[in-house]
Every structure is written in structure tokens, then in C-alpha cells.
């Protein structure tokens, strides 16, 4: 059972984590966690996709550059994909993207991939808990440069 997440303000920084969940396994796992009333931190926002293979690396790069604190891609366990091969591609893309982001200096915890099946409600809750705490420890993903600040980016 996910521990009762005590949420005493700390520095009040609440990370915002984007989650892609595949309709057949991880989204169902999240539903199961809900039905079983497993309490977890409220920092994750789920976008439903039909398969984890639909999540293109561009989404992850754009999300992190637009200032979101973390991106978590959830899929079925390899071999159990509803479309039989979707998550194999997610696995390869995830491996490559993780290394690339780390190479340009983005903390590895900010982009994670996990396999959660429809029957693993508890694992979903634990994953959310673990990822949220890891990212909270990193602090905000400060977007540098002219993107958000309205001071002119001219040189």
C-alpha cells in the first residue's frame, strides 16, 4: 500500500509531472489504484494514449523545455502490449532519449519510463510516489532564456 504521503509544505515547491499512460495497461492500472483508494501525491497529470508507442520524443523534449518538472511514460510490460509490439519501440526510444537528455545536462529523473500492467494498481501508486519525490528533490526545472521571461531576448 502506498504510504500516506505527508505533504508538509517543505519549501512549498510542488513539481508538476506530465504522465503518458497507455489505455490498455497503465491507464487501467491507474484506475485500479483509484478504485482501491491508494493515496498518492497529486503532482501527476495523466494524458491517455492508445499505446505507449504513440508517445513521440518531441512531446518529452517540448514538455521539459516548456518548464514542466518531469515526464513519465507508462506502458504495458514488454510482451503484454495490446498491440503486441508498441512498447518495444517505447523501450528503445526511452533508452536513447534518457541518455541524450542526460548528455545535455537534464537530470535523469526528469524523464522516466515504467511498465505498469492493468492489475498493478499498487505499483502505479508506488511509481507516482517515487517519481514525485525524486523530482521534488531536484527542485524546479528552471526554463532559462527568453522563453517565458518577457524581458526581450535580443542581443
Amino acid at each position: 500500500m502506498a504510504s500516506e504521503s505527508s505533504d508538509e509544505g517543505g519549501n512549498g515547491y510542488e513539481p508538476k509531472i506530465l504522465v503518458f499512460a497507455c489505455n490498455w495497461c497503465s491507464y487501467a492500472g491507474a484506475d485500479l489504484a483509484g478504485v482501491s483508494r491508494l493515496q498518492m501525491p497529486a503532482n501527476c497529470r495523466i494524458i491517455r494514449v492508445m499505446c505507449s508507442g504513440r508517445v513521440r520524443p518531441e512531446f518529452v523534449v517540448t514538455a521539459l523545455s516548456k518548464g514542466l518538472d518531469g515526464v513519465l511514460v507508462l506502458g504495458c510490460h514488454p510482451g503484454e502490449c495490446h498491440y503486441s509490439e508498441g512498447n518495444y519501440f517505447t523501450r528503445r526510444r526511452g533508452l536513447l532519449l534518457k541518455n541524450l537528455l542526460q548528455f545535455v545536462g537534464i537530470e535523469p529523473e526528469r524523464f522516466q519510463v515504467r511498465w505498469v500492467s492493468a492489475s498493478e494498481g499498487a505499483k502505479f501508486a508506488d511509481t507516482v510516489e517515487q517519481v514525485t519525490e525524486q523530482i521534488r528533490a531536484l527542485g524546479p526545472n528552471r526554463p532559462q532564456g527568453g522563453m517565458h521571461s518577457t524581458e526581450p531576448g535580443d542581443r
Binding site: 527568453g146 518577457t150 531576448g153 535580443d154 542581443r155
Partner: peptide, 13 residues
């Protein structure tokens, strides 16, 4: 020229 007509400049917010 980039000092008078910069590669990127904010016109207004």
C-alpha cells in the same frame, strides 16, 4: 547590422 537589426528582438509584451 545585428546591433541595429538584431537576430531576435521583442517588439512588445
Amino acid at each position: 547590422k545585428s546591433l541595429f537589426f538584431p537576430p531576435v528582438e521583442s517588439l512588445f509584451a
